[in-house]
Amino acid sequence: MYSKIVTTLFSAAVLACISLPNAQAQSETIQDMTGSNACLQSANFPAPFGESDLKGNAKLPAYCDCYMSKFEARRIKAAQAMQANTDTQANLDKAAKKKKRAEAYAEQLAMRNSCRQQLGLPPAADASK
Rank of each mutant, 00 (worst) to 15 (best):
L20I: 14
L121D: 04
P48W: 05
A78D: 11
L92N: 08
K59H: 08
A102V: 09
P123D: 09
R101E: 02
L40F: 05
A96R: 02
A78P: 02
K98L: 14
A47D: 07
F45C: 01
T86V: 15
P61A: 06
S69D: 12
S69A: 15
L60F: 03
P48S: 06
Y63N: 01
A23H: 07
D93Q: 10
K100Q: 09
S3L: 03
N57T: 05
D32L: 05
V6Y: 11
K94G: 03
L119C: 13
D93P: 05
K129C: 10
A12Q: 11
E103F: 03
I18R: 08
M33V: 13
A47G: 13
F71P: 05
N57V: 11
D32G: 13
A95R: 08
Y67W: 12
E51H: 10
D87W: 02
T34A: 10
K77N: 04
Y2I: 10
Q80R: 12
F71G: 03
A38W: 04
I18M: 15
D65R: 14
M82H: 12
A58E: 14
Y63G: 01
Y67G: 01
E103A: 09
D53S: 13
S19T: 09
P122W: 07
E51F: 15
Q26R: 09
P46N: 09
I5A: 11
P61Y: 00
Q117D: 02
Q83P: 06
T7K: 04
N22Q: 07
D87S: 14
M82N: 12
C66T: 11
L60N: 06
K70D: 06
S114E: 15
A12N: 07
M111A: 03
M68W: 06
D93E: 07
A95F: 02
S3G: 15
S128Y: 10
N113Q: 01
I30N: 08
T7C: 04
K129P: 09
K97F: 04
N22F: 13
P61T: 06
T34E: 06
M1Q: 14
A95D: 09
Q80A: 15
